[in-house]
Nucleic acid binder design. Structure first.
Length: 488
RNA sequence: GCGGGCGUAGCUCAGCGGUAGAGCGUCACGUUGCCAACGUGAAUGUCGUGAGUUCGAAUCUCAUCGCCCGCUCCA
């Protein structure tokens, strides 16, 4: 059905209809950055809203949070990002292939294992003896280059007195950093979750495929805290719940799948991880990750307890993160400041964490691509975005059949009334058929048309997007009709 | 970062050394009166950007920015 064979088609559609624009386009564009246009911003807000409703509002065991993007530098020391998100990379001069230095080490590191810069530097010294995994040439490597995966910025207006901070590379750490605050302020009891939606930043080595991998991106993350031993069942619970969410919001089941991470693919702290993947019509493998659900065990909270014990070290070292070494873990770590006391079991422990982490931008793209359809109607091509009503940027459009005889006034009144409930669009220009088709291309589920008889009988026509079928109803029933059909 | 391809109107593209073009879309007026209708008219371009070659550059050369594909990488 869908004719979006290439990424270019999607980019074109997004621009033409005002969903997504290249950032700073009038200045030649800024790599990897994109802006959401009038329809795009509504769509993206609806995606966020649908996630929040499903993960937070419809549940009794999840609360929300909105952390600052800038956090104490020690957060990233504890999380490991400060050390481990600085990979060393070298280029083979013979074949121009880029390779991570730690992959050339004598004892090959695991796939997702990042190594501290110092260790990598030490290994980098003897690159002259290493063979290129691509072409086999020995000692042809360039000087190794460090890739800073975190964006840096300065805090403090006085140039002589600033502190280097990082833009968060994930929202999750802000949740862990607030674990104690939420426990102390909300009467939550394990098992419970803390959810957050917000921007994150990563200097990806390569960006890719439109808004699919960008350096500034939006995440929707849940950290679900549970009793050790129950983590596997919660993992299954969230895996299923998150998959279903995409289905419920309109993704076709055949375009969605799970991909379990192999044991040797897992990050060292993760006990299990699965990706929810969507079959995008671009890229080499087609299937691309929308979301990861991971069992992070008690790793993060334990790391932050170590960080809390190391804060003096940070001050004593002139606030230089590079000079700080995290203190060893207290043998009684399970009684530490980020532990939880279970009243039922009369036991203190560090909860395990299940983390569903979704990409809002790539999900938005998936919803857009999946909704796109072209069909033949009386020899003409009709373009339709078959959005789920929950995501449609515009829920209803109101038209006077013609721009006279009092019809515009009635239509405007109806539109004004509906705007209080949901996003609604009024249009009185041009032929009615054209107005219908324009709304089809924006994905508007319903159009309401006021005709010449409405003045007399108070009846309007409601036209449904997918079937193009029309139904006559009383003006007074429009709002309830839409509420019911849109499930709002 | 490497290799390949591509940047001309909002979109799709033609033009490839000599006045900036088409289709679609957009806007206005008229007509019509429930599915991209018709008529008339109109607006819109730093030809990605900057240098160079030339009497003259959208066109040739170089640099640069951006996008796509591949490599590489990747919660």
């Amino acid at each position: 059905m869908a004719k979006l064979a290439k990424l270019d088609d999607i980019v074109s559609l997004c621009k033409r209809r005002g969903f997504i624009f290249q950032s700073s386009e009038i200045y030649g564009g800024l790599a990897s950055c994109y802006d959401y246009g009038p329809l795009g911003v509504e769509l993206k807000r609806n995606v966020r809203e649908a996630w929040w409703k499903s993960v937070v509002r419809m549940r009794d065991d999840v609360v929300g949070l909105d952390c600052s993007i800038l956090m104490h530098p020690m957060v990233w020391k504890s999380s490991g990002h400060a050390d481990k998100f600085a990979d060393l990379v070298t280029v083979c001069k013979k074949c121009n292939t880029r390779t991570r230095v730690d992959h050339l080490a004598d004892h090959a590191q695991e796939h997702t294992e990042h190594v501290p810069v110092e260790t990598a530097m030490a290994d980098a010294g003897d690159l002259s003896k290493k063979a290129c995994p691509s072409c086999g040439s020995v000692g042809k490597f360039s000087e190794s280059m460090a890739f800073k995966l975190m964006f840096e910025t300065q805090m403090g207006a006085n140039a002589d007195d600033t502190m280097t901070l990082f833009l968060r590379p994930e929202t999750a750490q802000g949740i862990f950093a607030n674990f104690r605050n939420v426990l102390d302020s909300t009467r939550v009891k394990v098992p419970f979750g803390i959810a957050q939606i917000g921007k994150s930043f990563r200097n990806e080595v390569t960006t890719k495929a439109f808004i699919f991998r960008t350096r500034e991106f939006e995440q929707a993350e849940l950290e679900f805290f549970c009793t050790p031993g129950t983590d596997e069942q919660w993992y299954e619970h969230w895996k299923a719940a998150r998959f279903q969410w995409y289905i419920d919001n309109g993704i076709k089941a055949e375009n969605l799948r799970f991909r379990d991470h192999d044991p040797d693919e897992l990050a060292h702290y993760a006990k299990a991880c699965v990706d929810v993947e969507y079959k995008f019509p671009f890229g080499s493998g087609d299937w691309q990750e929308l979301e990861g659900v991971a069992n992070r065990t008690d790793y993060d909270l334990r790391q932050h307890q170590r960080g809390m014990r190391s804060i003096n070290d940070w001050h004593e070292n002139g606030c230089d993160l590079q000079k700080v070494t995290l203190k060893e873990e207290d043998p009684e770590y399970f009684k530490g400041p980020l532990s939880y006391f279970d009243e039922q079991e009369k036991k203190r422990y560090i909860p395990y964490v299940i983390e569903p982490s979704a990409g809002i931008d790539r999900s938005t793209l998936a919803f857009l691509v999946d909704a796109y359809d072209e069909e033949e109607v009386k020899g003409q091509t009709r373009n339709v975005l078959r959005f789920s009503p929950s995501l449609a940027p515009i829920k209803a459009a109101v038209f006077p059949l013609v721009k006279k005889d009092g019809m515009p006034e009635i239509a405007q009144k109806i539109a004004g009334d509906l705007k209080g409930c949901f996003s609604c669009f009024y249009d009185q220009k041009g032929a009615i058929g054209r107005r219908y088709r324009r709304q089809d291309e924006a994905g508007t589920p319903y159009c309401i048309t006021v005709d010449g008889e409405t003045i007399a009988d108070n009846v309007v026509t409601i036209r449904e997007r997918d079937s193009m079928e029309q139904e006559k109803i009383n003006v007074d029933q429009v709002k309830n009709y839409l509420r019911e059909k849109l499930d709002l």
